[in-house]
C-alpha cells in the first residue's frame, strides 16, 4: 500500500481489513455464549459482558473460573490481568484521536488487539476511521456471536474444529511483518515474542503479553548501526 493510499483509508477499509476475521470472531462469540451458559452465568449476563467488556480472552478466563467454582476476586483478577495490555495500547492510540471527549471514549472502547493492529499506520500513528470501521464490525460480530451461542450453542459445536483458533495468530502475523521495517522494530518484535514465550509456563495468562510490551523500551536507545546518534543514549 502506498503512503497516499494509507492517508485516505476510510471506515470501509477498516471493515474490509477485519472481514475475514469477523467470521472467526462470531465463532468465538458463539463459544463464549456456550461456555458462559454452561458455567451457570445464565443468558443475560454473558451478553451484557460481551457488550461492556468486549475482550474475548478476559471473558473466557472469567467464565471458566466461575465454572469451576472460583471466587469473584479470582475471576476479576484474571480478566483484569488479561486486559492490562489495553493500558499501553490506549496510550499508543491517544495522539491519533483528535475528536471530542465522547468520540475519544468510543474509539477507546473499540480498541482491541485486532482493530488496533489494522489501524496502525507505522511511526506510532493510527487511523481513527479504520479503527472505528473495524471496531464496529468486530463488536457486532462478538456480541451477535454471543447471542447465538447463548441461544443455540449446542447445535454449532466447538470452533476449534474449524481451525478458527489459528485465524488470530495468522492475522497478527500478517500485520506484524509490514511493521518490521528496521532493526529496532525487529529487535522489539524478537524481544516481545521471547519475553511472552519465556513467561508463559510460569505466570497466569495475560501477564506474558503485558510483560512483552517491555520490548518497546528498545525505543529508548538511539537507532543502532546507522550512525544516526541524534538522540541521547538511555
Amino acid at each position: 500500500m502506498s503512503d497516499a493510499a494509507r492517508n485516505e483509508r476510510s471506515h470501509r477499509d477498516g471493515i474490509r481489513a477485519v472481514a475475514a476475521l469477523a467470521v472467526a470472531v462470531v465463532g468465538f462469540g458463539v463459544s463464549f455464549g456456550v461456555l458462559a451458559r454452561a458455567a451457570g452465568m445464565g443468558s443475560a449476563a454473558p451478553i451484557v459482558m460481551s457488550m461492556t467488556t468486549f475482550a474475548g480472552s478476559a471473558q473466557f478466563a472469567a467464565a471458566s473460573i466461575l465454572s469451576v467454582g472460583g471466587t469473584v476476586a479470582s475471576a476479576v483478577t484474571a480478566a483484569v490481568l488479561l486486559n492490562a495490555r489495553y493500558g499501553p495500547i490506549g496510550v499508543s492510540v491517544a495522539p491519533s484521536l483528535t475528536g471530542s471527549g465522547s468520540s475519544r471514549f468510543l474509539h477507546a472502547q473499540l480498541t482491541v488487539d485486532e482493530t488496533w493492529a489494522v489501524a496502525a499506520e507505522g511511526e506510532g500513528r493510527f487511523n481513527p476511521k479504520v479503527l472505528l470501521g473495524a471496531g464496529v464490525t468486530l463488536y457486532l460480530a462478538w456480541v451477535g456471536g454471543t447471542v447465538l451461542g447463548v441461544a443455540f450453542g449446542d447445535v454449532i459445536g466447538d470452533p476449534s474444529r474449524w481451525g478458527l483458533d489459528a485465524a488470530f495468530p495468522a492475522l497478527f502475523l500478517s500485520l506484524l511483518i509490514p511493521q518490521l521495517r528496521d532493526r529496532r522494530a525487529i529487535g522489539a518484535a524478537a524481544l516481545g515474542a521471547g519475553i511472552a514465550l519465556a513467561l508463559t509456563p510460569f505466570t497466569p495468562a495475560g501477564v506474558p503479553i503485558v510483560a512483552a510490551s517491555a520490548g518497546c523500551l528498545l525505543g529508548l536507545r538511539a537507532e543502532a548501526g546507522t550512525g544516526d546518534e541524534e538522540e541521547p543514549r538511555a
Partner: peptide, 28 residues
C-alpha cells in the same frame, strides 16, 4: 487524547506494535 506525546515516549510507543504483535503471534 489528541496531544502529541513527547518524542522519547513516541519512540517507545512506536515499537509497541511490533513487540505486542510478535507476542500475540507467539502466545496464540
Amino acid at each position: 487524547g489528541g496531544k502529541p506525546l513527547p518524542p522519547r515516549i513516541t519512540a517507545v510507543v512506536t515499537l509497541l506494535a511490533p513487540a505486542l504483535l510478535a507476542a500475540l503471534v507467539a502466545v496464540n
